[in-house]
Nucleic acid binder design. Structure first.
Length: 262
DNA sequence: ATGGTAGGTCTCCTA
């Protein structure tokens, strides 16, 4: 049975619960990973998602910041969440499906504005978080596993609107890009989106600050779906739903989809 | 070179 999975940074799940329901109705993924819930768990509108057919949810909430959820049409087993910083933030949660497929949902720290950990501790937190991911996946390389989420890094030159102009901009600096490559290598992951869509500019995020986000098209590919080698060996396909960025009162991120034969 | 928008604990923090 094929499995389809999507990831979407929703930027407030309460404000945009209707957009989530619309996406679920229109696309019917088996699993949807959400980031930036910006809500404690008790206020996440789980019943609206259940009414849309997504009765199973594994999530971690936090007031105002972060927050991650895995919604599913099929039963999920909560595998827990991992801390990668020296404080508790809802940036990761994992679940297992009945077919044994494990799903990791990540929200990597954005990292602030200055790409220097001496001047900007948020950048240091981002690098430390990525190092933690690298070490964890390196200990026990994942099998039958999908990693999805907002990794807040656009690794390739064609993942950003201007490679040259963004080399000093947090999300595309060489130190971040190299560390993300280390995470990928440590877990034997494949960037399934770029495996399926290997050519051309591809973005999943456009700033709210642009006068016309679509016309200027100054995007970045910050949202990712990775797969373990056994899943890459099966048929798969990917897409980015750019038009969702143009929905009314949108998130600044578009959802990313992948489908695997299993 | 600069400033631009959006959401939440809302005149300050994060993205």
């Amino acid at each position: 049975m094929p499995i389809s999975i999507a990831t979407w940074n929703i930027n407030s799940v309460r404000l945009r619960q209707n957009l989530v329901v619309r996406l679920l109705h229109e696309e019917r993924p088996d699993v949807l990973c959400l980031q930036e819930l910006k809500s404690p768990l008790e206020f996440v509108p789980a019943s609206a998602f259940a009414d849309a057919g997504y009765r199973h949810i594994v999530a971690r909430g936090q007031k105002s910041y972060n927050g991650v959820a895995i919604l599913s049409r099929h039963p999920l087993y909560d595998l827990g969440s991992r801390e990668f910083l020296d404080r508790s933030e809802a940036r990761h949660v994992a679940a297992r499906m009945e077919n044994g497929i494990v799903i990791h949902n990540f929200y990597v720290p954005a990292g602030g504005d200055i790409p220097d950990r001496e001047q900007n501790s948020k950048f240091g937190d981002k690098l430390d978080f990525l190092s933690g991911m690298r070490d964890w996946f390196g200990e026990d390389p994942p099998k039958r596993t999908i990693l999805a989420g907002d990794l807040n890094i656009a690794p390739r030159e064609d993942d950003v609107w201007s490679h040259k102009q963004l080399l000093d901009v947090v999300s595309h600096t060489p130190v971040e890009v190299e560390l993300l490559a280390d995470v990928l290598e440590a877990g034997n992951w494949t960037d399934i989106t770029r495996h399926d869509i290997s050519e051309g500019k591809l973005y999943t995020w456009w700033s709210y600050r642009a006068r016309d986000w679509s016309a200027s098209d100054r995007g970045r590919r910050l949202d990712h779906i990775w797969a373990s080698p056994d899943l890459v060996g099966q048929e798969h396909s990917s897409k980015v739903l750019r038009e969702v960025r143009g929905w009314e009162r949108p998130s600044d991120h578009a959802p990313v989809f992948a489908t695997f034969e299993d």
